[in-house]
Deep mutational scan, measured.
Amino acid sequence: MLEGKVKWFNSEKGFGFIEVEGQDDVFVHFSAIQGEGFKTLEEGQAVSFEIVEGNRGPQAANVTKEA
C-alpha cells in the first residue's frame, strides 16, 4: 500500500488525483474508494491505496481514508 494526499477531487464528476511524494500524481475514480455511503475525498486528505494499470495508465485502487 502507498500513502498520499488528495490533490483535488471533483465529487460531481467522481474523480480526482492523489499526490505521492517522489512520484507522478495518481488518478482516482470514486468507485475505488472503500467504505459505505457517498464516496468522495477532500483536498489534502491523507489516503492509502494501491496502484493498478487502468485503460489510460496507472490509477488508484482500494483507496482508504486515513484517520
Rank of each mutant, 00 (worst) to 15 (best):
M1I: 15
M1P: 04
M1L: 08
M1E: 06
M1N: 05
M1S: 07
M1T: 06
L2A: 10
L2F: 13
L2D: 04
L2T: 14
E3M: 13
E3V: 13
E3D: 14
E3H: 08
E3N: 13
E3T: 11
E3A: 12
G4N: 00
G4P: 00
G4T: 01
G4S: 01
K5I: 10
K5S: 10
K5M: 09
K5C: 11
K5E: 06
K5W: 07
K5A: 06
K5P: 00
V6H: 01
V6A: 03
V6M: 04
V6E: 00
V6W: 00
K7F: 01
K7P: 00
K7M: 05
K7V: 06
K7Y: 01
K7E: 03
W8K: 05
W8L: 05
W8Y: 10
W8V: 06
F9I: 04
F9W: 12
F9S: 03
F9E: 00
F9T: 03
F9D: 01
F9H: 01
N10Q: 05
N10S: 15
N10M: 04
N10W: 04
N10K: 07
S11D: 15
S11A: 15
S11G: 07
S11K: 15
S11W: 07
S11Y: 12
S11F: 07
S11M: 07
E12H: 15
E12I: 15
K13T: 07
K13L: 09
K13V: 06
K13N: 05
K13D: 06
K13G: 06
K13P: 03
K13W: 07
G14W: 00
G14S: 03
G14K: 05
G14V: 00
G14R: 05
G14D: 02
G14E: 03
F15W: 15
F15N: 03
F15Q: 05
F15Y: 14
F15A: 04
F15D: 03
F15E: 07
F15L: 05
G16L: 01
G16P: 00
G16C: 03
F17K: 10
F17V: 07
F17R: 05
F17I: 08
F17E: 05
F17W: 08
F17L: 07
F17H: 04
I18Y: 01
I18T: 02
I18C: 00
I18D: 02
I18R: 01
I18H: 00
I18P: 00
I18V: 06
I18Q: 00
I18A: 01
E19Q: 09
E19K: 15
E19F: 06
E19H: 12
E19T: 12
E19D: 07
E19R: 12
E19A: 14
E19Y: 06
E19L: 09
E19P: 00
V20L: 13
V20C: 12
V20Y: 09
V20H: 08
V20F: 05
E21M: 08
E21N: 15
E21R: 11
E21H: 10
E21G: 09
E21A: 15
E21D: 10
G22S: 09
G22D: 15
G22W: 04
G22Q: 09
Q23F: 07
Q23G: 13
Q23M: 12
Q23L: 10
Q23H: 09
Q23C: 12
Q23T: 10
Q23A: 12
D24V: 09
D24I: 05
D24E: 12
D24S: 11
D24C: 11
D24P: 14
D24Q: 12
D24A: 08
D25M: 03
D25I: 01
D25G: 03
D25E: 07
V26T: 06
V26R: 02
V26G: 02
V26K: 03
V26Q: 03
V26M: 06
V26N: 02
F27I: 04
F27A: 05
F27H: 04
F27T: 03
F27D: 02
F27L: 05
V28C: 15
V28K: 01
V28Y: 03
V28I: 06
V28D: 01
H29V: 01
H29W: 01
H29K: 05
H29L: 01
H29I: 01
H29G: 03
H29M: 02
F30N: 07
F30L: 07
F30G: 10
F30P: 03
F30E: 09
S31P: 03
S31Q: 05
S31D: 07
S31C: 03
S31H: 09
S31N: 08
S31G: 06
A32C: 06
A32R: 06
A32V: 05
A32S: 12
I33N: 02
I33C: 06
I33V: 10
I33M: 05
I33T: 03
I33L: 09
I33A: 03
I33R: 02
Q34M: 13
Q34W: 05
Q34S: 13
Q34F: 07
Q34T: 09
Q34V: 13
Q34C: 15
G35L: 04
G35Y: 04
G35K: 05
G35S: 11
G35M: 10
E36L: 11
E36C: 10
E36R: 13
E36P: 14
E36K: 15
E36I: 08
E36F: 10
E36N: 15
E36V: 11
G37S: 09
G37I: 04
G37N: 10
G37L: 05
G37V: 05
G37F: 05
F38A: 12
F38D: 10
F38W: 12
F38T: 10
F38M: 10
K39Q: 08
K39M: 07
K39G: 07
K39S: 08
K39E: 06
K39I: 06
K39C: 07
K39F: 04
K39V: 08
K39P: 08
T40I: 10
T40V: 12
T40K: 10
L41V: 06
L41G: 02
L41H: 00
L41T: 02
L41Y: 03
L41C: 04
L41P: 02
L41S: 01
E42S: 15
E42V: 13
E42T: 11
E42M: 14
E42K: 15
E42W: 10
E43S: 15
E43I: 12
E43D: 10
E43K: 15
E43W: 06
E43M: 13
G44H: 07
G44A: 06
G44K: 06
G44T: 03
Q45F: 03
Q45Y: 02
Q45R: 06
Q45M: 10
Q45D: 08
A46F: 13
A46D: 09
A46R: 14
A46L: 14
A46E: 12
A46V: 13
A46M: 14
A46H: 13
A46S: 14
V47P: 00
V47W: 00
V47C: 08
V47K: 01
V47I: 06
V47D: 00
V47M: 01
V47G: 00
V47R: 01
V47H: 01
S48V: 11
S48L: 12
S48F: 13
S48N: 12
S48A: 13
F49A: 00
F49L: 10
F49I: 02
F49K: 03
F49M: 06
F49S: 01
F49Q: 02
E50F: 09
E50W: 07
E50D: 12
E50Y: 08
E50A: 11
E50M: 12
E50T: 14
E50R: 12
E50L: 08
E50P: 00
I51V: 12
I51D: 02
I51L: 14
I51E: 04
I51P: 05
I51M: 11
I51C: 10
I51F: 07
V52D: 06
V52G: 05
V52L: 10
V52M: 12
V52Y: 03
V52S: 09
E53I: 08
E53S: 12
E53W: 11
E53Y: 14
G54I: 04
G54T: 14
G54R: 07
G54S: 11
G54F: 05
G54A: 08
G54K: 08
N55A: 15
N55R: 15
N55S: 13
N55W: 09
N55D: 15
N55H: 14
R56F: 05
R56D: 04
R56T: 09
R56H: 08
R56Y: 06
G57W: 05
G57V: 04
G57H: 05
G57R: 07
G57N: 05
G57A: 05
P58V: 11
P58K: 14
P58T: 09
P58Q: 10
P58L: 13
P58Y: 11
P58I: 11
P58F: 11
P58N: 09
P58G: 06
P58W: 13
Q59G: 04
Q59V: 14
Q59T: 09
Q59I: 13
Q59D: 03
A60F: 00
A60R: 00
A60M: 01
A60L: 02
A60I: 01
A60C: 05
A60Q: 00
A60N: 01
A60G: 03
A61C: 13
A61E: 08
A61K: 11
N62V: 06
N62I: 05
N62E: 07
N62A: 08
V63E: 02
V63F: 01
V63H: 00
V63R: 01
V63A: 02
T64M: 11
T64W: 14
T64G: 07
K65G: 11
K65F: 12
K65I: 12
K65S: 12
K65P: 13
K65H: 08
E66A: 12
E66P: 14
E66Q: 15
E66I: 14
E66K: 14
E66T: 13
E66W: 15
E66M: 14
A67M: 15
A67W: 08
A67L: 10
A67S: 14
